[in-house]
């Protein structure tokens, strides 16, 4: 479903040009759980952003479900991303002015899902993420674990085929982190493809495959099971 060929990403400022990605070629199959690891600054998040259609590569090809997307405009990418990719961030990125319920509802609003269906799906997801009792709370009133569960609920509510998680446990204690990983694992068991950036070898242990990056290049790939 995802295939990159020789992906390049350059960041240029007035003085220096940094190569963040240097020829990344990789495939991710449907239903796979892939962890991307590597030291700080190796290009993990840059890769994730490109895979998530948030950014364009400077070179190379990116086939997203058979469509070449590397030259698409922001507008086209937004259309493609809507409903097909869910995002989970380290810092949760919930909107402070919206309640748990409203945050989770947001992707469905942009998908123009009818109101009654929206209600069913949001409540279903909240129940599943065990956050239903907090539906009318604002993000600041929640613990970190609850916030991340809300963020995951928001990522999955539109039933995307792909979830991209950027250090989803980075801001959580181990108990909450464990819970989040189990949730992701469960989603993967149900067929959702997951690509996760992480520093934690333990978290990476949940994945089928670990891709190690160094200086913008894939150095090793380890397969579990």
């Amino acid at each position: 479903m995802i295939k990159t060929v020789n992906l390049q990403k350059l960041f240029a400022t007035e003085e220096v040009e940094t190569t963040a990605l240097n020829g990344i070629s990789m495939d991710v199959q449907d239903g796979e759980f892939v962890a991307i690891m590597g030291p700080s600054g190796c290009g993990k998040s840059t890769l994730l952003n490109i895979l998530g259609l948030l950014d364009n590569p400077s070179g190379g090809e990116y086939h997203f479900y058979g469509t070449e997307v590397s030259k698409m405009s922001e507008r086209q990418r937004a259309q493609l991303r809507k409903g097909s990719i869910g995002f989970v961030f380290q810092s949760f990125n919930l909107i402070d002015e919206l309640t748990v319920y409203e945050n989770v509802e947001l992707p469905l609003l942009y998908l123009k899902t009818p109101a009654d269906e929206r209600k069913v799906r949001v409540e279903e997801t909240l129940t599943r993420m065990n956050i239903m009792h907090r539906r009318n709370h604002f993000p600041q009133q929640l613990s970190g674990g609850q916030q991340q569960r809300t963020a995951i609920a928001r990522a999955v509510v539109a039933k995307p085929k792909l979830i991209l998680a950027d250090e989803p446990t980075g801001n959580l204690d181990s108990a909450n982190g464990e819970e989040v990983m189990k949730l992701l694992n469960q989603l993967n068991d149900e067929g959702t493809t997951i690509i996760m950036v992480t520093h934690s070898p333990y978290d990476a242990g949940f994945a089928h495959r670990i891709v190690n990056l160094f200086d913008g290049k894939v150095v090793t790939e380890n397969f579990h099971v």
Binding site: L54, R75, Q79, N93, L94, D96, L106, P107, Y110
Partner: peptide, 16 residues
């Protein structure tokens, strides 16, 4: 900015 970012990730168009 964060709100805008999240909305864009969710697929909000500039027009919206």
């Amino acid at each position: 900015a964060q709100e805008v970012g999240v909305r864009k990730v969710m697929g909000a168009l500039p027009r919206q």
